[in-house]
């Protein structure tokens, strides 16, 4: 059940209830303007896909919005609060968590420890509490939550293995489970399906939809597989050479001349 909302389909259009707004954010690498977004709004409670040929600046935009890279200009707001100059860990605490295109599993932590680390409210992460106690009860409830996430992502059998022993696809799943443990309002997934076993992809898509439908979360989703994008998205934003060239419902964007041109003109020959 896609989220219903009306917005016009011009690039940079306003949304009735935007959770994330981006204004004039740009980032240069040498002479290259890797990201140059004039205006972008993400509607709350939707699955918004970010597409675009390789090198379009999707990952860089994620890095900028989540504090992992600093833009050369511009501002952006989460739920009305500015995120300019906010450190990456603070962005996560304010409710926007991202995953990485190149998976970053914490290899020599167990799968369960990876997920537990995501818990946002563990007092035992303070040095004094760690020494003098008073965190076991919270750990127990966190562990229950972690078990249920691991179960959803089919990682229950692996929970005591080192994360470094997982396959590439399993690492993607773990990274998503870990991010969900933070319980963010907005979750940004950078190519979460890449390398995941096709049998699991359907499951994953199901989970992503459930995040929206059951928990009211906003999902921003970078994906290369057009079938997936068409199936899952409420809204699609296409980036090319750092700028938003088209946005709208999936059917609109997939038939947009500018989008087709961008993909065909892509020197990388990536026909995602």
């Amino acid at each position: 059940m896609p989220a219903d909302f009306a917005a016009d389909t011009a690039p940079g259009s306003t949304k009735p209830d935007a959770v994330l707004t981006v204004d004039g954010v740009f980032r240069k690498f040498g002479g290259l303007r890797a990201v140059d977004v004039a205006h972008l709004e993400v509607q709350r409670g939707t699955i918004t896909s970010l597409i675009g040929p390789n090198g379009a600046g999707k990952t860089t935009l994620f890095n900028l919005l989540t504090g992992f890279d600093k833009p050369d200009g511009g501002e952006w707001h989460l739920d009305g609060g500015t995120l300019v100059g906010i450190a990456s860990y603070q962005v996560a605490r304010r409710g926007m968590v991202r995953t990485f295109q190149l998976t970053k599993s914490l290899a020599r932590l167990t799968v369960l420890e990876n997920v537990l680390l995501g818990a946002p409210d563990q007092p035992g992460e303070r040095l004094s509490r760690a020494l003098f106690g008073g965190w076991a009860a919270k750990e127990a409830t966190n562990t229950e939550k972690a078990f249920s996430l691991l179960d959803q992502f089919g990682l229950t059998d692996k929970r005591d293995d080192y994360a470094g022993s997982l396959s590439g696809g399993q690492r993607k799943l773990l990274e998503m489970a870990r991010a969900l443990m933070v319980d963010p309002a907005v979750i940004m997934l950078d190519e979460p399906m890449a390398g995941v076993n096709p049998a699991l992809t359907q499951d994953l898509l199901h989970h992503v939809k459930a995040l929206r439908d059951e928990q009211g979360k906003t999902v921003v989703f970078i994906e290369h597989d057009m079938d997936v994008v068409m199936d899952i998205s409420d809204w699609v934003v296409c980036l090319a050479e750092g700028a938003v060239i088209s946005e709208g419902p999936p059917e609109h964007v997939s038939t947009d001349e500018r989008v087709i041109d961008a993909y065909l003109g892509s020197t990388h020959g990536d026909h995602a």
Binding site: A107, E125, V182
Partner: peptide, 12 residues
Amino acid sequence: EDEDATASLGKN
């Protein structure tokens, strides 16, 4: 193991 991953989960 990984500073970025740790920061992405809200840890300082």
